[in-house]
């Protein structure tokens, strides 16, 4: 698992580097002393996990998460502030460690990241989106902003977090564009993004108040894909 540490506190970076060097499934891909440096690093390198400080000059950790929200790289926050936890978990944050780091807590967080990573191959920003032709223009659609896709006869509606795009196409066509790990067809007329499912009850899924039917033939695969306790 390739990691990037983003922190302007060099002592804490040094400690984290040492702790990570002892974990066999972790490889330190790089360190960055600020968010700008990190963004530039991430344009050229693939990483599987980011350790992120919150209090940093210019762009702080929360702002970094906002900028980088479309990327699906899991993040472990390392901060001496507890109060940012609520904001941080709005993003792809899998754990929140307090400074100074506790070794056992770190190992636990890495275990969580590893489990998370088994279902993901993290890719660069450029492969996190695709384009939909709407009239004469091409609109960028980030995979992680899609809630679900609905078939409407000869048209499909791509329902995003902030808007809906309806175009002349088929579910089959869009299904080929979507990453298999994140999306699943749950009905002849619906493809959903798995991590957007808020509730799954009987034969229906709830995503942002929308009730989406799950057909019997797709139910078994859905049950397998969902991380059910």
């Amino acid at each position: 698992m390739k990691c990037l540490i983003i922190d302007d506190d060099v002592l804490m970076v040094h400690i984290l580097e040492e702790l990570l060097s002892e974990v066999d499934f972790v490889e330190l891909a790089g360190t960055a002393n600020n968010a700008k440096e990190a963004i530039s690093f991430l344009h050229n390198h693939d990483v599987d996990l980011i350790f992120l400080d919150i209090e940093m000059p210019e762009i702080n950790g929360i702002e970094f998460l906002q900028i980088f929200a479309r990327n699906s790289v899991p993040v472990i926050i390392v901060s001496s502030h507890k109060e940012y936890a609520f904001d941080a978990f709005e993003y792809n944050v899998i754990d929140y460690l307090l400074k100074p780091i506790d070794r056992n807590r770190l190992l636990k967080a890495l275990g969580r990241a590893r489990q998370n990573g088994n279902n993901h191959t993290i890719t660069r920003e450029s492969s996190e989106n695709f384009y939909i032709k709407v009239n004469s223009s091409y609109q960028s659609v980030f995979f992680d902003k899609i809630l679900y896709v609905e078939s409407l006869g000869d048209y499909i509606s791509v329902v995003l977090e902030d808007r809906k795009i309806t175009v002349h196409s088929t579910l089959k066509k869009i299904e080929q564009k979507l990453p298999e790990r994140d999306f699943l067809r749950v009905h002849n007329s619906f493809i959903v993004r798995l991590d957007k499912i808020e509730k799954y009850e009987d034969n229906f899924i709830t995503i942002r108040k929308a009730l989406i039917p799950v057909s019997r033939s797709h139910k078994m695969l859905l049950n397998q894909k969902l991380n059910i306790l």
Partner: peptide, 22 residues
């Protein structure tokens, strides 16, 4: 600090240098 890397003198010294700079 020693608990992070028991017996690792180089780590200890480097950490103290960084603490001093900080």
């Amino acid at each position: 600090l020693e608990l992070y890397s028991p017996g690792n003198k180089a780590f200890l010294i480097r950490s103290i240098e960084l603490l001093r700079d900080e």
